[in-house]
């Protein structure tokens, strides 16, 4: 018997997908209709990709990333396919011949509204880009579930298989204290929507370090190290590839977090310049985010054929020798 991870789908560099030398073949085309318009796409194209090739109104996504195997868990990108019993996730569902797809039907709009309500009523979305915009667009009312449950430091200890009566006063939340246990990055799981991206990036899709996993079940499910041990005791190698894919700001470099705490983080004043990492010879593209002539963050472009958006600890954090680090207050 051979064991294949459930993640058996190949994740290849974009370049490989495009170029697969010597294996070029004609990809068959399929036709579908999206919001009443006929579309022809290559077989295997997802509904989301097909939609993005048109100028249909934006389909929101949270757990989707080009460089990760789709987990389709956030359910904010749902669309309606005629004949299907339930809505389908556009990020992972390939277009099939003859599909009739609606991206703004009443069912779709209602499901997106509810998903946004569910998230916004249980998670702190204050650093999730576009969250406020979507909540307004879909007229979500997260407040209707009641006042949010205050922070609890017991989420890491939740035991599976034990029922606890719900509160009738508060709406359950994932509010909890922020985890600051090392100098490089901060985990604020009160902002975590459990999109699985960090776990995929740390695990089988890129880094394969598996320092974190989804632990627990149901609403108690959480991103955790083994026995919720602090990061410095875990297998973490501080590549920060989890930060790179986090869609909500739950994971953030300590420097950015410190600067935000101090009110000194000014994204609109930052420039981003691509260069090459000064360490080993692999040649990873570093996008340097510079504020006030100080490098404040390093990322790598997702579409980069060398990195697919990933870096190691040296690329992600090791550039501070260039200029002495300024305290955020200064």
């Amino acid at each position: 018997m051979t064991g294949i991870a459930p993640h058996a789908g190949q994740v290849l560099s974009p370049l490989v997908r495009l170029e697969r030398a010597g294996k070029r073949r004609e990809v068959p085309m399929v036709e579908c209709s999206i919001d009443g318009r006929a579309v022809r796409v290559e077989e295997g194209t997802t509904i989301l990709a097909a939609c993005r090739s048109l100028d249909v109104p934006e389909i929101p996504t949270l757990c989707f990333a080009e460089t990760l195997r789709p987990v389709n868990v956030c359910r904010v990108c749902m669309v309606e396919v005629e004949g299907a019993r339930v809505l389908v996730p556009s990020c992972s569902r390939p277009v099939e011949q003859g599909m009739v797809i609606h991206t703004r039907s009443e069912r779709v709009m209602s499901a997106r509204r509810m998903v946004l309500e569910f998230l916004a009523s249980s998670v702190d979305l204050s650093t999730t880009p576009k969250a406020a915009e979507w909540i307004a667009e879909y007229e979500a009312e997260p407040a209707r579930y009641g006042p949010p449950m205050p922070a609890s430091d017991e989420r890491d200890l939740a035991l599976t298989g034990h029922h606890h009566e719900p509160s009738v006063e508060y709406a359950a939340t994932v509010q909890q204290p922020v985890k600051v246990d090392n100098d490089l990055y901060v985990r604020d799981y009160a902002k975590c929507i459990l999109c699985y991206k960090c776990v995929e990036a740390c695990g089988p899709d890129h880094q394969n370090t598996f320092a974190i996993a989804i632990a627990g079940r149901g609403f108690d499910a959480r991103v955790s190290t083994e026995f919720a041990t602090p990061l410095p005791d875990s297998a973490c190698v501080y590549c920060g590839n989890c930060i790179a894919v986090c869609p909500t700001g739950a994971l953030m470099s300590k420097q950015e977090w410190d600067m935000r705490q101090a009110g000194a983080w000014k994204e609109s004043e930052q420039s981003v310049t691509d260069t090459i990492c000064p360490y080993c010879g692999v040649g990873c593209t570093l996008s340097l985010h510079v504020q006030d002539n100080q490098i404040v963050k390093a990322t790598s472009p997702m579409e980069n054929s060398v990195t697919m958006g990933n870096l190691c600890i040296k690329g992600r954090f090791g550039w501070r020798f260039v200029q002495p680090r300024k305290e955020p207050s200064s």
């Binding site: 490089l184 954090f317 020798f321």
Partner: peptide
């Protein structure tokens, strides 16, 4: 270079 940052 690598001495310039705090790493766990």
């Amino acid at each position: 270079q690598s001495g310039g940052y705090d790493s766990p």
